[in-house]
Design a protein around this nucleic acid. Structure first.
Ligand SMILES: [Zn+2]
Ligand SMILES: [Zn+2]
Length: 821
DNA sequence: AGCACGCCGACT
DNA sequence: GTCGGCGTGCTC
């Protein structure tokens, strides 16, 4: 191999090749110029590692250039280190990436990072390692910190640690390192970015050589095996096939009978090829919808509003089927995938190997491989969560967002803070293909967009599936005023009506879902005598209790992931008695045990679904009818389709209604309709009982009537009055710092700046402390901007915002935020 | 971001 | 006088 040159030299000048690389470094928009080493083949679009100051980072090659950038000394030009992978994005795809960057006010690299499989753009790491194996520690006066570092390094198998880790762990890090360096006991080095998702394997390729006289039996066996495999095969396979060790292959390589090289290895997804299930017969409404969809030839926005159980999936699948025949590909976006395994199964059952799946539960390697498959020009179907909206399908013909109202389609923390629906629309327009938004409870945004669209009417469609398939009725919904229950002397958490239905459950051999209207599913711990709640030392949130068979239990922070064991005594008052209060699933199961001992149940919360796949197995157990009742919170609402469920009981809906969030009502309505929709999907009609202390609440009333439109009209009036989306537009500015005073001060300066500079039709709300005032040791403040009509901030304005903040204050901008208080 | 360089206070 | 703290500006 050629030695890697770092810088340009005189001799390079005559015959150089230069590329512009967009490096993965925030705040830098212009590309950097690099030399192409003679032994590397580089194409625009390649993902590469490049040296950048004193480190190596990832980047993407934009184009070749034929002159050095002016005002730069050519001697400063460095060479590309290596190529990670090649990928050619179409012009439309690049346009889309740029549009996303512009709309969400972030750098193009950040969008590219979101679009690529995770961690493909890497960075080097500075590390410290032991030089000598035996260190004479007795030797003289080593400072404490040096001894600590030595001990750590010696304990570690690799005899090395990252600088960052040691800096955090050792208090006099700098001094300790210096002493050790002076004695030449340690050295620092740069560990190159490891792109482990790109699996390389050694490939053996046969060379033409007819002289087989002086070969051994084993060598002949190797050549024979190669011949049988058309002259090339992976080394590992070759060795097992011909039963030899690699030295035999090396000998043959020396004699020029073959050569070896590294090639990328794709892990083919192991699809179980089941028998392909046939299309179902459609209802009249379904085929009407399908006909409209099939007639679409260009960009169009379709809202498919189908009640729960109306067979939206079947419409999607038949639309995709026609699309595939035309040689085009389809993209299907779903909420967090594990919650909708049934949708996945139907697609794979219908289309078999044409379906690939892309979501965050896959390993980096699997995601990378799937992503590579997408680049192939063949009709295919990609099903995935939010980030799959960037699937680089070359011949995209249709984008579907199933359960389009779901909040997991919005990225909230990391830039770009994109909504998959927004990106899907951009792609649809650029690729000139329709997008379908499917839901039983469409987001107000989509409802307004389709009904009061600025598009010519031929480009937006409202398709309704108002009835369930097989003429099954929607479940009846009964609202129970829990104040009356108490008045009548019923102290149970189950109303008399729910008690009666639970009583009948066993003899009818039906199943039930009991739903607790709470966000999240966490158990907190408080002291029984002083009420002290144990909080995270880094964040202003309560720690969450996790059962642990080895100890008393573990308290974890759901935000920064720090943990501690459950204390024996209250740290405040030393009382040994604690109270566990949580989402209420425990209370419900206790009541079930007491009042309905004949019913078996499953609890569905963080304790029971902690392990990977455990919740899928819980759901399987339930859908196979092995238990009577499933008890849980939010996670129960999506895509659960069990025929024998005839009863859904909402123990308390009120936790959903009173949240200090602008969007709380919309989400409460969606949640209640979705959970109600789990009832009566089989032959038996369903029944829903919703318990509340505020039966007169609009959400409760409209849910009772299954009246989506009525809810929407009432909620839209409120949104219009308050200038909230879908009429107004919001930008959330989040400021954070390790120093509490500093953020507050910056927030005020920020406000003053905005008040002076921002356009008139923008209302500035705040500054105010964020909902979680402290997160990962950082104190947080926020400012909300409310625009009367369209977002009017320009990229140059946003750049000025970053300049306001001192370096110790971090600024995050969330465009169209969905959680706001 | 993250790394190097540079300028200033307190400790030899 | 030097060590080591942090502020500032550059990275092909
Ligand atoms: Zn206490
Ligand atoms: Zn925390």
């Amino acid at each position: 191999m050629l030695p890697k040159q770092k810088y340009f030299t005189k001799s390079d000048q005559s015959n150089f090749q230069l590329v512009e690389v967009l490096v993965d470094c925030p705040g830098l928009e212009k590309p950097y110029t690099y030399g192409v080493p003679v032994n590397l083949l580089i194409k625009p679009g390649d993902i590469v590692n490049v040296p950048f100051k004193a480190r190596v980072i990832g980047g993407i090659v934009l184009n070749y250039v034929d002159s050095f950038p002016h005002n730069i000394d050519y001697k400063k030009i460095k060479y590309v280190n290596d190529v990670i992978t090649t990928s050619v994005f179409s012009e439309k795809y690049w346009k889309m990436l740029n549009q996303v960057a512009q709309y969400y006010h972030t750098d193009l690299v950040n969008v590219i990072k979101a679009a690529l499989p995770p961690r493909l753009l890497g960075k080097s790491q500075r590390r410290i390692r032991l030089v000598t194996k035996i260190v004479n520690q007795e030797d003289g006066d080593l400072p404490d910190s040096s001894i600590k570092i030595l001990n750590l390094l010696q304990k570690e198998k690799s005899k090395s640690y990252s600088v960052k880790y040691l800096q955090n762990k050792i208090k006099d890090y700098y001094k300790g390192i210096k002493v050790l360096k002076n004695r030449n006991w340690i050295e620092d080095y740069l560990e190159m970015p490891k792109n482990s998702q790109v699996k390389q394997q050694k490939l053996v390729i046969q060379l033409k050589n007819n002289n087989s006289s002086n070969l051994t039996v084993k060598q002949l066996a190797v050549l024979e095996a190669l011949q049988l495999n058309n002259g090339s095969m992976p080394l590992s396979e070759l060795l097992t096939w011909s039963q030899v060790s690699c030295s035999v292959v090396q000998a043959l390589e020396k004699k020029k009978y073959l050569y070896t090289e590294y090639r990328e290895k794709l892990r083919l997804s192991k699809q179980k090829v089941e028998k392909i299930r046939l299309a179902k017969t459609l209802t009249t409404n379904q085929s009407k919808a399908l006909n409209v969809i099939n007639s679409l030839q260009k960009y169009a926005e379709v809202l498919l509003h189908g009640v729960t159980g109306s067979g939206k999936t079947e419409v999607y699948m038949q639309a995709i089927s026609t699309l595939l025949d035309k040689g085009k590909s389809a993209l299907v976006l779903v909420p967090e995938i594990s919650l909708t395994p049934q949708l996945m199964d139907s697609f794979q059952g219908r289309f078999g190997v044409l379906v690939s799946v892309y979501h965050s539960n896959l390993s980096d390697g699997e995601r990378y491989d799937t992503w590579r498959q997408m680049l192939i020009e063949k009709p295919q179907i990609v099903i995935g969560t939010r980030s799959a909206v960037f699937a680089p399908l070359p011949n995209l013909g249709l984008i579907i967002l199933d359960e389009e109202h779901d909040s997991s389609f919005k990225q909230t923390q990391i830039a770009p803070t994109y909504h998959a629906r927004k990106v899907a629309k951009m792609r649809g327009i650029l690729e000139n293909c329709p997008i379908i938004l499917g839901s039983a409870t469409p987001s107000l945004e989509s409802w307004v967009s389709v009904h009061y669209s600025k598009l010519p009417s031929s480009n937006s469609y409202y398709l309704s599936l108002p009835e369930r398939v097989n003429l099954r009725p929607l479940p009846s919904i009964e609202i129970i005023d829990m104040r009356n229950e108490l008045k009548q002397g019923n102290k149970s958490i189950f109303s008399r009506s729910l008690q009666k239905s639970l009583n009948d459950l066993k003899k009818q051999q039906h199943q039930a879902i009991l739903f607790i209207g709470r966000r999240g599913h966490s158990t907190f711990v408080s002291c029984r005598s002083c009420g002290h709640v144990i909080k995270c030392p880094n964040c202003d949130v309560s720690l969450v209790y996790h059962y642990d068979s080895n100890s008393h239990g573990v308290l974890k922070c759901h935000y920064c992931n720090s943990s501690r064991t459950q204390p024996i005594k209250c740290p405040e008052c030393k009382s040994p008695y604690f109270k566990f209060f949580g989402n209420g699933t425990q209370k419900v199961t206790e009541a079930l045990n007491k009042e309905f001992p004949e019913l078996s149940f499953l609890r569905f919360d963080s304790d029971t679904t902690r392990y990977k796949d455990s919740y899928r197995s819980l759901l399987n157990k339930f859908s196979q009818g092995k238990v009577d009742v499933l008890v849980g919170t939010q996670m129960l609402t999506k895509g659960l389709d069990v025929e024998k469920v005839t009863l859904v009981g909402v123990i308390s809906a009120d936790g959903l209604l009173y949240l200090s969030d602008y969007y709380a009502s919309e989400r409460a309505f969606q949640t209640l309709i979705q959970v109600s929709g789990r009832a009566g999907r089989g032959k038996e009609p369903g029944q829903v009982i919703i318990q509340t202390y505020v039966p007169e609440n609009t959400v409760i009333q409209t849910v009772k009537e299954h009246n989506y439109e009525s809810f929407v009209h009432k909620e839209l009036i409120r949104r219009k009055e308050l200038n909230l989306p879908p009429y107004g537009h919001l930008i959330l500015i989040q400021l954070s710092s390790l120093n509490a005073m500093e953020v507050e001060k910056t927030a005020e300066i920020f406000y003053d700046f905005l008040a002076k500079n921002i356009s008139l039709d923008c209302e500035i709300l705040g500054p105010a402390p964020a909902n979680i005032t402290k997160l990962e040791k950082r104190y947080r403040w926020q400012i909300l901007l409310k625009f009367k009509s369209h977002l009017q901030t320009t990229t140059s304005e946003i750049k000025a915002w970053y300049k306001i903040c001192p370096s110790s204050v971090k600024l995050k901008i969330d465009i169209d935020p969905i959680y706001i208080s």
